[in-house]
Each structure stands twice: as structure tokens, then as C-alpha cells.
Design a binder for these strands. Sequence first.
RNA 1: GUGCUUGUAGCUCAGUUGGAUAGAGUAUUUGGCUACGAACCAAAGGGUCGGGGGUUCGAAUCCCUCCAAGCACGCCA
Length: 559
Amino acid sequence: MANTLLMTKTQIYDAAYNAAKKAYPEIEIPEFTIETPKDKGHGDYAVNIAMLLARSAKSAPRAIAEKIVENLSAEDLSAEKIEIAGPGFINFYLNKRYLYNVLAEIEEEQEKYGNIDIANGKKVVVEFVSANPTGPMHMGNARGGALGDTLSNVLSAAGWDVTKEFYINDAGAQIDKFGRSLDARYIQLLKGEDAVEFPEDGYQGDDIRVHAQNYIDKYGDALLEKEEQERKDALVAYALPLKIAALQETLTKYGINYDVWFYESTLHNGGSVKETLEKLKNSNITYEKDGALWIKSTEFGSEKDDVLVRANGIPTYFAADIAYHRNKLEERGFDLAINIWGADHHGHIARMKGAMEAVGISGEKLDVLVIQLVRLMRNGEIARMSKRTGKMITLADLIDEIGVDAARFFFNMRAAGSHMDFDLDLAVSQTNENPVFYVQYAHARICSIIRLLSESGVSVPKFDETDCSLLKKDEEIELLEVLAKLPEEIRASAQSFDPSNLTHYLIDVASHFHSFYNACRVRDEEENLMRARLKLIDSARIVIKNVLDILGVSAPEKM
RNA sequence: GUGCUUGUAGCUCAGUUGGAUAGAGUAUUUGGCUACGAACCAAAGGGUCGGGGGUUCGAAUCCCUCCAAGCACGCCA
């Protein structure tokens, strides 16, 4: 079933267009907008076409509006009246009966209500978190995870074929540092703290020592006699899978289940990096200097050129990343790649797209969402995050402290680009202030009413057996209106890649339900009215549940 | 210094891609439970939309310029 609201909107837009065309056949009608006015007194929809025509029609906007309205039929649009207001808006006041259809739509579509198709099943890969496996996940990962997973769900609901992906950096300098750190701890544990100096840039975290100790407990000191490289390789081969498993466990707890865990090492081992470098060389975008291979990043907007292959022969992260995106967009045939990066990587975007163009892939196929890093606050002061102190608050800590629901909802309350202070004291001590409870409470309240009625033998009626016309109080109509908006909200979120729309919408739905609840009773009303209201709140329940599912937040029936 | 991001009520943030009198939550004040869950509802006060110019019927939104904050400018990832 097509969405009533979207259909009505389109109808009015077309009608206004045709009416203007009729009134001014000699003038080309410009793109105009149709919107739902903020002020209820301005009707259900408003178009601004008259103001936009003022110049070319050489007359006052209100006069133009009048000529357009003459060519509009309120009856055809099931509108109660059409008015000209303000500087020249044409306002449409609809007969509220059209709203009752939304209850039929929800009944028919159930958990699919709200889903639309704006992508025709095009394939998108959403890559997010991709935390370095050598360290714990920080608040930036927590925010990126909440965003990426939710955005993926939104895109699915909007008709995309979505793949959620985690890119594991299991190669390169980071891993080498990991190996050197493990090696130093291994030797220190066996031969004393002074036996070897811990690398200056090494990982200070306790987990390094723990992994070294566990290795010793399991396999003893045999590695001491081996070459350093062999020792490091053995320690990494032991510890890295454990680190990755820990990442996976935490993310699963966080409600994130990836479709693909992509290992960077496969790009190196499979020759893909080498092949990509050849391709770049052939397109004359590279040169050699100081024994390294450079790419002319300045040609696509960067301030400096970048190194692709170091003087020691090892390709940089950048080189691997280009190969990775060829893999996504060429080998695996995704129509679009969305990456979620922390603000500290934003400088990487322009050169990444430039490099993609250089290997023959349109930069348009890559969309990078930059999330501003989260600033932790404690006692009103900034608690700086540091990868080196080992004392930072991790994603796992956050989940333990405030729960998955609050964390995921909270992070999705703000658009990715906004700077965000995360008040730990507030999150820990006053979780009641988090709006997630407000929304969940609405859901639980509805379930409670339905449960009570069900115990006395009353079940949610079918739309066909409900007299919806009894729903005519302001609170009832407004609740219907907000329920009807879900498909439009999903469209907006999917197009702007911004799920924060949906948390705001959800709060709006909950708010309208709570207002309804305080203004209208369901139980103990006259039977037909009770049935109609029961149908209404059950529809609200479905809408809340559907959006909470997208957000990855639970919808409790009791709290 | 250069680039990216941000600046809206005391605080945390929305603002339908340029629309009508800038909105919520929180905090403060005041009402509402013998009634389906008061983790709720209703109402009031609270604003130089960082400052200043410009574009047009119309600007929180677009352009320019200052101011302030965060981030990035590695043969790190």
C-alpha cells in the first residue's frame, strides 16, 4: 500500500503546478516547495509558488496566488479549504479523514511500516568503527558504532542492499609496534624489567603484559632463543586473534553484528596492493623521491604529496586503503561505499577520492561521514582521551556503566558533525534524564493497556471493524498525524545519511502519545470509542517499536 | 600559519535544505494521581540565532569578513 501522506503531498504539489501552468501558460513554472507549516493555523500543507512567480509574472504574490487558487479544486484534493495567507503562501487544509488510512497501512505492513524504496536494491557497503585491534575501543568508536549500525538499518529500511563491514588493520606499522611491545614485555617478564628497554612508542596498556604472561604460561620461554622477528611474529600470531575476538565480543554486546570482517592483510597477500600501485604508476600520478614512491596528492587538492611505498619497501596505509576501495567498488561491485571516520581523519578524504579517480573509480561512489570526536566530561572538567595512558574509558566500560540502550540512543541524538560533550557523571548517575526512557516508557505504557484489555477479553480490532471517525479530539488527530510521518522521516534520514532525525521523531511520537494518554482514556470508554483508541495506540506501539529496532534499542513491554 | 568542523534560551540541543510570531528537553515557578503505569501531563517566564556587512519579496539557513572553540597538517593509521 502506498503511503497516504506521501501520496497526498505529491497530489497537492502536482495540482498546484498544473494550476499555475493554467493561470500563466506563457511562463515557465519554477521549482517550488511544499511543506508542512510549523504553525497549525496555517493548514496541513503550504506551497510558496506564488512568491517565486512574482518576478516573472510581474505582479504581487498574493494576486498570483489568487489566480492559481481559481484553478484549484478543493474537492479533488479532499481539502476542506484552500487559503492564501501571509506574503503569498497557498495553504491547504485537509479533511482529516485521510489520516485514518494510516491505521490501515500500519495494520497491513506491521514491522515493515515505514519502509520505503528509494534505492531499488542498490548495493552499499557501510564501513564503521574499524578500530585498531591493538588497542581498546574509545568513545569515538562508540559513537561511530552507534551511527554506522543505525545508518545501515535506516538504509535497509529505505530499500538499499546493505553490507556492514569492519576493516581490520592487521598489517603495517601498527602491528609491528604491537609486536615490539609484546616482545619487550615477554623478555621483561622472563628476565626482569631491566633486561630490555620498552619501546618509547610502544603500547603501555596492561593487556600487553597480560598477553605476554599468558603466552608464557602456555608455551614457556622457548622464544627467547629465537630471532627477534620470529619471536614477534609468534607473539602477534598468538595475541592478535585474541584482541580481534575481544573486539567482536564487545561490538556484539553493543548490538552490532557485521556482515563482513575484512582483513587488511588479504590485500597485501593477495597482490591487490601491488596491482593497485602498478595502476597508479601507469596513470602518471606517482614519482620516486628519496627512495620512496610518492603520489601527487597536490593535483587533487591536498597540500602535500603523500608516500605510497616507504623507502624500506613497505606500502603505507594509504596505499592499502586505495586497494581496499578498489576491492569494494570494483571487485565486489558496490554502488556506494560509506565510511565513517573520526574527525582526526578528515584530511584523508580529499586525497582518497583523488586517488580513486586516478585508478578510474568515481570519487562520488565514496561518501565519508566525519564524526566529531567525543569529549568526555567528569566533574565538569574535560577528561582527555588518550590511547597511551591505558586509563581511558573504553566502549566496554561505557556499556557496563550506562547500558546499550542509553548509549546507542544518546549517540544518535546528535548529527555526526556536531561536537559532543559526554557527561559521564550524568550518564552514570542520572540515566532518567536520558530521553530513551521517555520513549521506552511510552511503549511500556501502551503494552500495559493492551495487556489489561486482553485479560478482560478485548483484543486489538481490525481496521475494517473499527469506527475511526470517533477519533476526533486534537490529541487523537495529532497522534495520527505523527504516525503518518514515519515513511517521510525514514526517507529524510536515508537521504541525508543522518539517523538523528529518527531519535527526534521518536521523542515526538512518544510525546504525542503521552499527551493523548493524559487527555483520553481507552479502558472504560464506550465500546466503539474504546476499540478505536485501542487501534490507535496499538499503531503507535508498532511505530515506536519499528524505530527502536532501527536504532538498535530495546522496546520493553514492562519497565 | 593553512585546511576541515562547530557557534541558537542559564545548560544540552532541534530548526522540514531560503519561508509566516525561532522551537523542544532540562533547570526555575505553578497546577494535575480514589481513574488504563506520575519514569507522565498542562501552563508561565527565559533569545542581539557569536559580531559586522552583503544577496532578495523573505536569512538562524546562502556569500564576504572578523571573533571564539575542536580537529588535522608524519616514509602514523
